[in-house]
Design a protein around this nucleic acid. Sequence first.
DNA 1: AGGAATAGTTCGTCTGGCTAATTAGTTTGG
DNA 2: CCAAACTAATTAGCCAGACGAACTATTCCT
Lengths: 147, 147
Amino acid sequence: MSARTPLTASETDLASRLRLIVTRLARRLRTQLPGELSPSQLATLSSAERLGPLTLGELSTAERVKPPTMTKIVACLEEQGLVSRTVDRSDRRVARVEATAAGLRFLDHSRQQKDAYLAERLRDLDPDDRAALERAAGVLERLLEDR
Amino acid sequence: MSARTPLTASETDLASRLRLIVTRLARRLRTQLPGELSPSQLATLSSAERLGPLTLGELSTAERVKPPTMTKIVACLEEQGLVSRTVDRSDRRVARVEATAAGLRFLDHSRQQKDAYLAERLRDLDPDDRAALERAAGVLERLLEDR
DNA sequence: AGGAATAGTTCGTCTGGCTAATTAGTTTGG
DNA sequence: CCAAACTAATTAGCCAGACGAACTATTCCT
């Protein structure tokens, strides 16, 4: 976490370009879909799907949210039938949260909508611009992997 | 805005990879720096800098926020000495908001911090991975332009 | 068995956004 | 030329989402 040697100008320059791009594009994707679920509800639903059945505690650390908040988020998702809770049989303190079929449908639909926005713009690119994005996507995916 | 021909699988696939990358990275950048200014305060300060002296009304449309909200945001920034307000001489209803020297320093500092997170990770990449990102940055910048 | 630890919830509060109504200043039609 | 209509900003009151502290229920440990 500590700096080893000072960062070069080209390093910080690329970093700040990427930061601007990422934050602006994310904002645009977010505002694209004034969904019926709050951002953290949607994110929680998505985590529940990606990471399989999770306890409330696991969900709250994954979403970087405090336990009381997660309690409310999950309660709301459950009311709408998008997730189900099942108490662990061997430890009845914990409850596992899982996306329901309706939850999966909802996620799928909302992703399609968001993807459509991007895809619509991507289709206008010439092949080697697109290839550049494919390449960068791989690099960034690896970069996001290791913590 | 309407679809011309159905999107191909590779188009939507790249779109959804990019969407995931962008939303996750944005989230990480956001939570990275639990700054002393709220997101919209920071964004407002930044707009005030980028777009020169702006009226409250202009700021509130730029930030997609309602006028009363902008009143509060600006009041808070002014209290901290990061922006200044000057009433228009010819129309005394409007007030123009401008970043002060302290505001500029603050922005500069906070940008450096945010960039540091990314830059730290970018420095571990081999040259052609970095080149791929440079290339992609250009493509995405253009893509964000036309809207 | 009984105390410490753990998962989740409840309660009260704070923050940041909104709408509706208000104030102050400007423009315009009769 | 002045009253009505309009406009910029503010004030007041409300709501949603997040938080910390305290509480309940359950399990673990000796």
